[in-house]
Amino acid sequence: MSHLSAVLKESWHLVEDRQDRVAAYFYARLFLANPQLRDLFPVQMDVQRGRLLGAIVATIQNLDDPARFDGYLRALGRDHRKYHVTPEHYAHVKTALLDALRAHAGDRWTSVYEQAWGDVYDLTARTMIAGAEEDDGPPYWHAEVLDHERRRADVAVFTCRPLRPLRYRAGQYVSIECPHQPRLWRPYSVANAPRPDDTLEFHVRSTGGGWVSSALVRRLKVGEVIRLAAPMGSMILDPASRRDIVFVSGGTGLAPVKAMLDELTRYNRTRWIHLFRGERGHDDFYDSEELDLLAEAHPWLTVVRSVSAEPDYPGERGAVTDVMSRYGPWRDHDFYVAGPRAMVNATLTRLTEMRVPGTRIRYDALTSD
């Protein structure tokens, strides 16, 4: 698909500097022609517009990797069941998307671009529909909040139990909708491996304008019922690997790392594990005591913390990527990276410079708000 991918990138470049207007035009066109679809979307559409653009970019980036492209879209199709999307809706979206691209590319839009976007969209729709149809689970799970603890002013850790079991792998994430922000779904990583009692733990940090994160941190109460969508994500432990592991995390990127550590405690005996955790200041390490107990109980685990904005910190100082680099060499290790997008991107760049094979790197840069 390399030629098709090149055509998509070339045509996207025509509108990339106006992508916010492309998204606004798309939704205006979609709702004007199909007003019944408006109820499928949240009242606040600002973040939703950004998610549309993110999906377009992800499609373009994954097109040259057929297996990843197929897996991503099938998972996305299953995930969209929570919106009650039907196969008929895809045709409406295609019309609105092509109209938006055509309108903002202007005279530079060609029949070649039109055909390429149409073909890719048709493939995308078929794959997503197939993913939805092959899923025999519910469109979402209702889950009761069992406990809720504020670890910092802007961080909460809470546990919930779905009313029916939700099957997932350690390292995956689910989208959450809470009663305080109906129809707004945001992705959060599960912070534990599957348990016999089916409970799931989540770590949430509220962001400045985050509708859902703020509600989950400040308003969610024990006894309330939230909704969880189907699990997604491929940052899971490689069952065939026997290599030692390096985890690099920042912020609530600790959540999927804790889930994978939880899984490793159940069977690991031979692999050495290093966890590098970076924050701006020492007060940001909201889960230190539990991690220290975990390292004390399992000698194969080493936890290294670093801060980037506290000159008097007695431990490691500097960006977590730099600290991790000083502890190498790591060329024979598996890497898992999770946290803020800037930290993840910096770590991926550094690992490339260190010539760590890309097949040994898995990452997660969820940005929930």
Rank of each mutant, 00 (worst) to 15 (best):
Ser241Trp: 07
Ser241Asp: 08
Ser241Ile: 09
Arg242Phe: 14
Arg242Pro: 08
Arg242His: 15
Asp244Ala: 06
Asp244Thr: 07
Ile245Cys: 02
Ile245Gln: 08
Ile245Ser: 04
Val246Trp: 10
Val246Pro: 00
Phe247Ile: 04
Phe247Thr: 03
Val248Phe: 05
Ser249Pro: 07
Ser249Asn: 12
Ser249Cys: 10
Gly250Trp: 01
Gly250Thr: 07
Gly250Ala: 04
Gly250Cys: 11
Gly251Met: 05
Gly251Gln: 07
Gly251Tyr: 14
Gly251Trp: 00
Thr252Gln: 01
Thr252Met: 06
Thr252His: 00
Gly253Ala: 08
Gly253Val: 00
Gly253Glu: 02
Leu254Ile: 04
Leu254Trp: 00
Pro256Lys: 06
Pro256Ser: 00
Pro256Cys: 04
Val257Tyr: 09
Val257Ile: 04
Lys258Gln: 15
Lys258Glu: 11
Lys258Ala: 08
Ala259Met: 03
Ala259Cys: 00
Met260Gly: 00
Met260His: 01
Asp262Cys: 03
Asp262Asn: 08
Glu263His: 12
Leu264Ile: 06
Thr265Pro: 04
Thr265Glu: 13
Arg266Asp: 11
Tyr267Met: 09
Tyr267His: 13
Tyr267Cys: 14
Tyr267Lys: 11
Tyr267Ser: 15
Asn268Gln: 13
Arg269Ala: 14
Arg269Leu: 14
Thr270His: 10
Thr270Met: 12
Thr270Leu: 09
Trp272Gln: 14
Trp272Ala: 09
Trp272Cys: 02
Ile273Pro: 01
Ile273Val: 15
Ile273Leu: 06
His274Gln: 13
His274Ile: 03
Leu275Val: 08
Phe276Ala: 02
Phe276Lys: 05
Phe276Glu: 13
Arg277Met: 14
Arg277Trp: 14
Gly278Val: 01
Gly278Tyr: 01
Gly278Met: 04
Glu279Val: 07
Glu279Ser: 14
Glu279Met: 08
Glu279Gln: 14
Arg280Asn: 14
Gly281Leu: 11
Gly281Val: 15
Gly281Asn: 12
His282Ala: 13
Asp284Tyr: 08
Asp284Met: 00
Asp284Gly: 10
Phe285Ile: 11
Tyr286Trp: 06
Tyr286Lys: 03
Tyr286Ser: 01
Asp287Ile: 00
Asp287Gln: 04
Ser288Glu: 02
Ser288Ile: 11
Glu289Phe: 05
Glu289Cys: 12
Glu290Gly: 10
Glu290Leu: 07
Leu291Ser: 03
Leu291Gly: 04
Asp292Gly: 08
Asp292Lys: 11
Leu293Met: 15
Leu294Ile: 04
Ala295Asn: 08
Glu296Ser: 15
Glu296Leu: 14
Glu296Val: 13
Glu296Trp: 15
Glu296Gly: 15
Ala297Tyr: 12
Ala297Cys: 12
His298Glu: 14
His298Lys: 08
Pro299Ser: 13
Pro299Met: 05
Leu301Pro: 03
Leu301Cys: 03
Leu301Gly: 03
Thr302Trp: 07
Thr302Ile: 07
Val303Pro: 13
Val303His: 03
Val303Ile: 11
Val303Phe: 12
Val304Leu: 07
Val304Asp: 05
Arg305Trp: 05
Arg305Lys: 10
Arg305His: 11
Arg305Asp: 07
Ser306Val: 02
Ser306Asp: 06
Val307Met: 03
Val307His: 05
Val307Asn: 10
